[in-house]
Design a protein around this nucleic acid. Structure first.
Length: 500
RNA sequence: CGGGGUGUAGCGCAGCCUGGUUAGCGCGUUUGACUGGGGGUCAAAAGGUCGCAGGUUCAAAUCCUGUCACCCCGACCA
């Protein structure tokens, strides 16, 4: 019997909800579509922020903060952008509340110009940059902002798609196209690096097809990850905006030749959706599994005792072990150690930490103290697969142990993705690959398929029926081929999948 | 916004069709005892304006009308 009911096999979407609930990551709030991120979930996000923020700074970026509200006229300026975002914005039309005739509060003080709550900040940041840029000497501008944004989505799911979500958005302006394109690539590289080396989540970096582009972008790059239901999740995006936004926002300057020209801009972002990606990449039927590098706690110490005398003895041993472990460093940080001395039954407590995904559990009782040892279980192995080892050895090797868990999770995720990825050149095989075997569980289907394609009517018909989309066009060398849908020769090759 | 469904204890549900004393059950919570390295056992206790408003009736969780909220399926999406 697994700790999470139902299992992934039985009902994947419900399993996902239960993992979140059992691990106390987040819950639905009193506000439709908005979540409460609980301390354990927020700590994961904070760890993500800390690492990413360092990476952004290492690549020359600075943090700044721009307003939550955007005048409605700003959104209007870029035609495609309007098209893409206008439908899903929260709009502020009043600035006061006053009691109505029935005693209930009602909005008052109508605004001359409605404000929208930012769904993304290209327009307001662009308008600001326009004031900052007069000369080529003012460029590049390399700024990131950590913020919350609001998109009034029809259907929400914890972490994956919520009405309000937390993210970072980088916005840069450059003097020439080449530099802006390099920036777009560089930041996608940062995301891919973060995904693989911190989240232990292999990703496919690539370019979006025209239909999947960010509204207003010339080109959108993304990293795509495979979840355990074999669907693709877009885990990060980096947009080359060309001069579209600088034209709309009038970000112009005099270049070296004294010519008045428009800047070239980019934007890139990742969100709390990454927490959802983390959950669906590694977790199992006993709950959350965390890669050590992002785990709020690396090690939990679980004292075991029967009476007060044993209790004080065991707690003392745990305290000293905790002090010792905190001197150890892992991936550049001091070890994060939790001593769980809550007055709870032993098994109960152990299972809570299993469900929360703590990488290493250490059970310590009178027996271990007598032998100067510890009883260790790792989250990437079965719950009863525990072993005793000398205390000194554990302390000396715990960092290696964490690294091996980190590596193991990445290897497992890579193996899973490889197992469900195919190169397909035959349309029947493509259709078979993406047709669920069981109508009741449409999530069980093929996985990722690499195929040559050409944006054609035949393609749209097939994809719409199967609910499959081209996720991205990986930048890799491959011979030309024939479009799997139309048979026409093409040089384009994309990764196709069902997506979140 | 279209189609379907659900609102009863902290959570998950039964009861409603065929109105009738103090509205049940499981989990959880609290207390006590026995326990204790796979979430244990027993006993006791606390906890509910049956989503909200109106109507029918001697009597409404149950029937009727309205309303609100949430969930699922579609169109939209990081």
């Amino acid at each position: 019997m697994s700790a999470i009911q139902p299992t992934r096999e039985e009902d994947y979407p419900e399993w996902y909800q239960q993992v979140i609930k059992s691990a106390e990551l987040a819950e639905n709030s009193d506000v439709r579509g908005c979540m409460v991120i609980r301390p354990w979930g927020y700590a994961i996000w904070e760890n993500m922020q800390r690492v990413l923020d360092r990476m952004f700074k290492e690549t020359g970026h600075e943090n700044a903060y721009f307003p939550l509200f955007i005048p409605i006229s700003f959104l209007q300026k870029e035609a495609e952008h309007v098209e893409g975002f206008a439908k899903e914005c929260a709009v502020v039309t009043h600035h006061r509340l006053e009691p109505g005739p029935d005693g209930k509060l009602r909005p008052a003080g109508e605004l001359d110009e409605p404000l929208i709550v930012r769904p993304t900040s290209e327009t307001i940041i662009g308008a600001t940059y326009a004031r900052w840029v007069q000369s080529y000497r003012d460029l590049p501008i390399l700024i990131n902002q950590w913020a919350n944004v609001v998109r009034w989505e029809m259907r929400t799911r914890l972490f994956l798609r919520t009405t309000e979500f937390l993210w970072q958005e980088g916005h840069t302006a450059h003097a020439d196209e080449q530099e802006a394109r390099e920036e777009t690539d560089r930041m996608l590289g940062v995301y891919a690096d973060f995904a693989e080396n911190y989240m232990a989540m292999p990703v496919i970096p690539g370019e979006k097809t025209a239909g999947e582009r960010f509204p207003g972008a010339v080109n959108t790059l993304s990293i795509e990850a495979m979840m355990q239901d074999r669907k693709a999740l877009q885990a990060g995006t980096s947009h080359f905006l060309g001069q579209n936004f600088s034209r709309a926002q009038k970000i112009q300057f005099q270049d070296k030749n004294g010519q008045e020209v428009f800047a070239w801009t980019t934007s890139w972002g990742v969100s709390t959706r990454l927490v959802g990606a983390l959950i669906m990449t590694h977790s199992d039927d006993d709950g959350l599994v965390l890669p050590p590098r992002l785990a709020p706690k690396h090690v939990v110490l679980l004292p075991i005792y029967r009476n007060d005398q044993e209790k004080s003895q065991v707690l003392e041993y745990c305290q000293s072990l905790r002090q010792e472990l905190m001197q150890v460093s892992f991936a550049g940080d001091p070890l994060r150690v939790l001593l769980d001395d809550r007055d709870l039954r032993g098994g109960d407590k152990t299972w809570q930490h299993i469900k929360k995904g703590v990488p290493i559990r250490v059970e310590i009782g009178p027996r271990d103290i007598a032998s100067q040892s510890v009883f260790v279980g790792r989250r990437d192995r079965g719950p009863k697969e525990k072993s005793s080892l000398p205390r000194a050895e554990f302390v000396a090797t715990v960092a290696e142990l964490l690294q091996s868990i980190q590596q193991n999770l990445l290897d497992q995720a890579r193996a899973f993705r490889a197992e469900h990825t195919r190169s397909i050149s035959d349309l029947d095989e493509f259709i078979e690959f993406f047709t669920p075997r069981n109508e009741a569980q449409p999530e069980i289907h093929g996985g990722f398929a690499y195929c040559h394609f050409q944006d054609c009517e035949e393609m749209h018909q097939v994809l719409q029926k199967l609910k499959v989309t081209p996720r991205c066009i990986p930048r890799e060398e491959h011979p030309d081929g024939k479009c799997i849908f139309s048979g026409r020769p093409t040089s384009l090759r994309a990764m196709f999948a069902k997506a979140y």
